[in-house]
Design a binder for these strands. Sequence first.
DNA 1: CGTAAATTTGAATGGATTCAAACGTGGTGG
DNA 2: CCACCACGTTTGAATCCATTCAAATTTACG
Lengths: 238, 238
Amino acid sequence: MKKKAICTDPTWAGRSDCAHCAIRNRVLFADLPHDELDVALLAVDDLFYQPDRLLYRIGEQGKVLYTVRRGMVKLVRDLADGSERVVRLLKAGDVAGLEVAIGSRYKHTAITLTETEVCRIPLSTLERLEVHSPRLAHQLMLRWQNAVDDADRALVEFSTGAAEVRIAHLLLYLSSLNEDGTGIELSRHDMGSFLGITTETASRAMADLKRRGLVTELPGRDAFRCNRQLLARIADPS
Amino acid sequence: MKKKAICTDPTWAGRSDCAHCAIRNRVLFADLPHDELDVALLAVDDLFYQPDRLLYRIGEQGKVLYTVRRGMVKLVRDLADGSERVVRLLKAGDVAGLEVAIGSRYKHTAITLTETEVCRIPLSTLERLEVHSPRLAHQLMLRWQNAVDDADRALVEFSTGAAEVRIAHLLLYLSSLNEDGTGIELSRHDMGSFLGITTETASRAMADLKRRGLVTELPGRDAFRCNRQLLARIADPS
DNA sequence: CGTAAATTTGAATGGATTCAAACGTGGTGG
DNA sequence: CCACCACGTTTGAATCCATTCAAATTTACG
């Protein structure tokens, strides 16, 4: 509802070095031969964002797309009543702004949730490679299917059932992203906006799960640990 | 909840004739040159389905995808509690089973809602063309983005807000598909399953809209006419 | 015409929302 | 360093809306 000026200036972390990228096999240039990779690298920047920074805004005629290397990004749609709905949560390896690859304007507003590192890939680079690189075309298709899968999941797991069930699904998802089983704490507002419930309902359900010991706040940075076994029982009343 | 044996046998309407296809510019082989088209046609069948017929089931290792030429198809996911959730409604021009193009199993169960005419395209045909046809690759990407758009819409318009609001969105959508402003009547069960509400709630809201004159049943086949102006006001409380 | 299925309606319940207020926390400036 | 303010979270209470379970009614179909 309220307008907040979001500083967009990221830190330039350097020209990308895809060949040595830790998540190379999960990102866009996965199958590219080295010589083609060299061409791509020239224009790909590695950027570092603070939390709550704007990557792009819905409707903009974008000329770049982003690969998330670290952190988490939310894709947001504005609702008729002025509020907003989080449509998807992007994790490391996901792509934001894929739609520019077919010449479309951005279909969402993309905002970082945590400290985030991304690769910014110009559309021009993509187009140059795509012509003689069926590999890249295939990679793009994989990304698209990925987006569809995530969207379906947002519908089936995160927007269906009682509030507690949705939250259970969300916590299970977030905690599945790190090997150590911890997950990033979202604000109650973002939770609600993603799950299609109000902030208060999200807060109540979370507070309740904490009281029952299914979720415990981690002292350090905004993270939580949860009992996946018990949460799974709530998520899927078998 | 209940198991029903669905006869899958469609009527074979003939080998496809994409060159003269009325919706050619809206389907997969849109930009193909004629000589490549000829290759494709050999294996593409034009099929005709009755309402409530199964195209494919979730999890199957499919080797074909479908272009909807006429009618409407629902993509369904099974829920944990045994019920089902309609994830998407496919209209003429949409593609079902795109995921097989990247080697995936079907991600949904696809069932016809109306009399439906489809083109059945074998994956092998796709693969043969894809190699030397960047046009097709681009077409596929367009389809994928389409699927993402529809999925986002399912979330934002059809699974957010009060029951009446969701129904208003649905009726507006259905009535936008035909030039004459009429729309296909869905069963209350399917409506509910797609909108994330119960059959009874769907029924109540629809009955109410009818009483208020915003929706009128058409005498002929299962179709309705609606006051788009007033429905739009319900859908977007501006 | 008669039965099965789908739709509609009713009444009671439960869960989410709404509006408000209390609480905690981090940051700023005195 | 502390007081204070802004903002997010939590909690409370009343209301509203959707669900549930049940029954009545209509429609479809053999």
